[in-house]
Simulated assay, not measured.
Amino acid sequence: MIDPTARCPKWLVDHMSNCGGSISFYKYMNLVLNDPKNGFYSTGRLNIGKKGDFCTSPSLGNDFARLLAIQVVDWFLDLKKSGIESELFSLVEIGPGEGSLSRDLIVAIAEIAPALIRKMELILIELNVGMRERQEKVVNNLEGINCRWSNIEDLISKPVTGVVIANEVLDAFPVERLVFTKNKVFRQGVSLKKINNEYFLELVDLRPTQAIMRFLQDSKSLLNIEFPPKDICDRWITEWHCDVPILFDKLSKILINGSLLVVDYAMESKRYYNAIRKDGTLISYRNQKANSNILKDPGLSDLTAHLCIESTINYALSNGWKFMGETRQGQALLALGLSSFLYSLQNTSSQDLSAALNRRESLLRLVDPMGLGEFRWLAFQKDNNYDLVFNNRFLEEPIN
C-alpha cells in the first residue's frame, strides 16, 4: 500500500527513472541528503538549533565546547610532552555543521592554554558547499589561529598531528538496510510508483550484494550474535553503516599521531540487533519532530541511524586505531566539570535570571539520559613509533 505522504519530487523522479525506477536505500539516502542541487545537507536547507530541524549539543550554547575543550587541551599537551615534533598541531573537525563547535573550541582553548593556541591550526572537512558557506561566516573571524578547509584526500597526501573530532556525523552516513523475512535476507530498495499521473515512493526488497553477505558473516564471528536474532517477527529490518570502515581507514591516513573522538547516537550490539527492534534505528527529523516515515519529504528532512558500538570499535581497530574507551555523554561532561558550571549559576543576579535559567536548561539537556546525554563518546588514538599515553579525563569519575 502506497503512503500518500511519500510523494516523490521531480528531481528524484528523473534520477530514479534513469536508474530503471528502483535504487538501493543506501543510494536513496545519499541522494536526499547529499545531492549537490537538492540534498538536505548540500543545499544548506538544514537548520540546526532550538528553532531549526533538530538540536545538536553545540547549538545549545558554548558550554559543550568549553567542557570538551578541557579534554582536547589535555590531548594536545600529551602530544607536546611526548616529544613529538610538529610545526603545528591540528584540530580537525569532520562535518562541522554550522561551525559553532569549532569556533567555540578555539575560543575555549585560547582561554585554557593561550600558549598552545599559537601552535595550532583549525582544519574543517566539509563536503557540502551549502554548509561550508555557513561555516565560513562563523569561523573566519577567529583571531590568532589559521583556519582552512580541506578534503580527506588532500590531508592523506599531507597528514597532520593533532586531534580529530566527529561530532554527530557518522549517524548521517548512508546505510544499507537489511530485511529478513521468510528465512531470507534482502537489501532494501526504494522504487517509483505512478498513480494518477503522480509519483510516489515505496520500499521494495532487492537481492543482497556480496558485501552484505560478508558483513553478516563477519558480524556473527566478531560480535558473537545471530543474524537474524531469535524470535523475530515476520519482517525484521536493521542497518549496516557500510561507509564507516572506509572512513576509519582514511582518517588513519590523515593523522600521524594524535586522537580521534567520535560522538554520536550509538548502542551495544545486543540492543541494536534485537528481535524487539524490528524496524531498525533509522529515523527522519524535520522541524524538531522525529518521524518513522523515512520516505516523507525527500531532500527536505534529515535521516539518521544509530551506530553499533562494537562494530564501530572493530572497524577502528582493523584500520590501525587503538581504542581508548567509551562512555555516555552525560557521564563524560560531568567528568569534565559540568556540575561546576551549574553551581556557578547560583550566584546569578536577579537582572540576569532569565539568561541563567536558559543556560541551566541547556546544560541539563546536554546530560539528559532521554536525549543528548545518551550520546556515546568513543575515543581512539594513533601513534607512529611513539609510546603515547593520553589523559582521558572524560572517562574518569564525575566531578561533584
Rank of each mutant, 00 (worst) to 15 (best):
P4R: 12
P4M: 05
A6R: 08
W11V: 04
H15A: 02
C19A: 09
S22D: 12
S24A: 07
Y26R: 10
M29D: 05
N38R: 05
Y41H: 13
Y41C: 04
N47Y: 15
K51M: 07
G52M: 12
G52D: 04
F54M: 06
T56C: 02
G61N: 06
R66E: 13
A69Y: 01
V72N: 02
V73G: 05
V73K: 03
D78K: 06
S90A: 15
P96H: 07
G97V: 09
G99E: 09
G99T: 06
R103A: 03
D104F: 02
V107Q: 07
A110D: 11
E121Y: 07
I123F: 07
I125R: 02
E133T: 08
E133P: 00
N140Q: 13
I145A: 08
C147T: 11
C147W: 05
S150N: 11
N151I: 10
E153Y: 10
I156T: 09
P159K: 10
V160A: 03
G162Q: 08
V163R: 02
I165F: 01
A166L: 12
A166W: 09
E168Y: 00
L170I: 11
D171F: 04
D171T: 02
E176P: 00
L178I: 15
V179C: 13
V179I: 15
F180V: 07
F180N: 03
T181P: 00
T181Q: 11
Q188A: 05
V190M: 06
K193I: 11
K194P: 00
I195N: 09
Y199C: 05
R207C: 08
T209R: 15
T209C: 13
M213L: 14
S221I: 15
I225H: 06
P229W: 14
C233D: 07
T238N: 03
E239V: 14
L251Y: 04
L251K: 08
S252Q: 06
K253D: 06
I254H: 06
V263I: 12
Y265Q: 04
E268M: 08
S269L: 05
Y272K: 02
Y272D: 00
N274F: 13
I276F: 12
K278E: 08
D279T: 14
L282G: 00
L282N: 01
K289E: 14
K289I: 15
A290S: 12
N291W: 03
N291L: 05
S292W: 03
N293E: 12
P298Q: 07
S301I: 04
S311F: 15
T312A: 08
N314V: 02
F323I: 10
E326L: 08
Q329M: 02
L334V: 01
L334D: 02
L338E: 01
F341P: 00
L342F: 05
Q346I: 09
T348K: 14
S349P: 01
E361F: 11
L363M: 14
R365H: 07
P369N: 09
L372G: 00
G373M: 11
E374A: 15
E374S: 14
L378P: 00
A379D: 01
D383P: 03
N385K: 13
N385P: 00
D387F: 12
E397L: 12
P398C: 05
